[in-house]
Structures are given as structure tokens and as C-alpha cells.
């Protein structure tokens, strides 16, 4: 039977809606507890406020922050993507400066509505701030939809959102049918200890 979360699953939706009222401040403080590797706590707070509106928590489930995309981003900037750490932080600070200039406060101090407005201004543009938007969005997608081994996609929130049933050791022919809801296999490629 299908046990995935999806938009037609009313009871699950109600559960998640209740989760949607977790205040941002609570998320930020939980993010701070992960002791960032590449970003300072202040930078992490700004990033969290930014990606929290890129992929917000809502009736379809957890957002980027609850899925831990910021953990993924912080880790890759400290490790395999260390070469872009400085330019990423410059971009983050440029967007924060933009927020102060145009919207009167740092990103982390803006309301959800103001942050949405900020993102809409950056999406699709070609300014340095828009380039940061594109890069931050790309890394957020990697964190939220990549294997939870890397720190994001907690509880397989990303895979559930797009209805990806997860890597599994072998795939039967019936799991490749048209319009088939395949039962999710919620296991990281690196074992059961990741993703929770």
C-alpha cells in the first residue's frame, strides 16, 4: 500500500500544517546548534532565513531548513566546494546588504512576506545578487533532494515532496509502470543510519 506523503493525504497534511507554525527563531537556534563548519553563526542565520523562503514549510511538508539543506551547504563549502566558499559568503553578504538597502532590514529580521518579495526581485535577474540567488537555490536543491548522507533531506523530506521513491537494491518491472505509486524505500545509499 501507498504510505507516502502526498497532497491528497488529508490527515498527513493536517499534521504538517500544525508543524508550519514553528517560528523561524526556533529553526535558527536549532541550526546554530549544528556548529557550522564554513559559515559563522551570523552567516548561517542569514542563510537559514533566505532558504527558509526558497522552499518554505507548508501543507506539502517540511521546507529546506527543516530538511537540513543549510547543513549540506555549510558542509560542502567547508569541504568539496571550499573553492567557492569566499564568493558564496560575499554573495550572501551582498544580498543581506540589498535587503537592508531596499527593504530596511537584514534578511533574518524581515517578515516572511518581505523575504518572499526579496526573492521575487532576485529570481531571473542577472545582477550579482541574482547570481547568488541561483547558486544558493542550486545548493539548496542539492541539500534537500540529495542523499541524506550529506546532511540534508532529513526524514527524506525532499524525496517525499517530489514523490521520488528512493534508491533501492533492485527494482522490479512493476515499479517502473506508468502512473504507479511506488512504495518509498526510505534508506540512504550509505545505510540506515542516515536520514533521521
Amino acid at each position: 500500500m501507498i504510505d507516502r506523503m502526498n497532497s491528497r493525504d488529508v490527515s498527513r497534511r493536517a499534521l504538517i500544517q500544525s508543524a508550519a507554525f514553528v517560528p523561524l527563531a526556533a529553526l535558527v537556534s536549532s541550526a546554530q546548534q549544528t556548529s557550522p563548519a564554513a559559515l559563522t553563526p551570523a552567516q548561517m542565520k542569514t542563510l537559514v532565513a533566505f532558504i527558509d523562503r526558497l522552499i518554505p514549510r507548508d501543507e506539502l511538508g517540511p521546507g529546506a531548513v527543516e530538511a537540513g539543506a543549510q547543513i549540506y551547504i555549510d558542509r560542502v563549502l567547508a569541504g568539496p566546494n571550499a573553492g567557492e566558499k569566499d564568493s558564496f559568503i560575499q554573495g550572501l553578504e551582498a544580498v543581506d546588504a540589498y535587503a537592508k538597502r531596499v527593504h530596511g532590514a537584514a534578511i533574518a529580521e524581515l517578515s516572511a512576506e518581505k523575504r518572499d518579495q526579496l526573492l521575487a526581485e532576485l529570481a531571473g535577474g542577472s545582477t550579482p545578487e541574482s547570481q547568488f540567488f541561483n547558486r544558493a537555490r542550486r545548493l539548496t536543491l542539492e541539500g534537500m533532494f540529495g542523499d541524506p548522507y550529506y546532511g540534508g533531506n532529513k526524514d527524506f523530506a525532499g524525496w517525499d515532496l517530489i514523490r521520488y521513491p528512493g534508491p533501492r537494491p533492485a527494482v522490479a518491472a512493476e515499479d517502473q509502470g506508468l502512473n504507479v505509486d511506488v512504495k518509498p524505500y526510505r534508506v540512504s545509499a550509505y545505510g540506515v543510519k542516515y536520514g533521521h
Partner: peptide, 28 residues
Amino acid sequence: PIEAAAMNTYGRAPVFGSAWKKFVHDNA
């Protein structure tokens, strides 16, 4: 999944926010 989530939205949805989530939920 990353490639799928990074899909073209064909002008049918914004590239972020709840409307985007709904779009990729349905279309990824």
C-alpha cells in the same frame, strides 16, 4: 531527484516558494 527538482517550470510556476513546491510535487 536533484535533477528532477531543478526542472524547468515552463513559466507555469515561480522558481521558489509554496507554488513551486506544489509544481514540483505534481510534475517532477
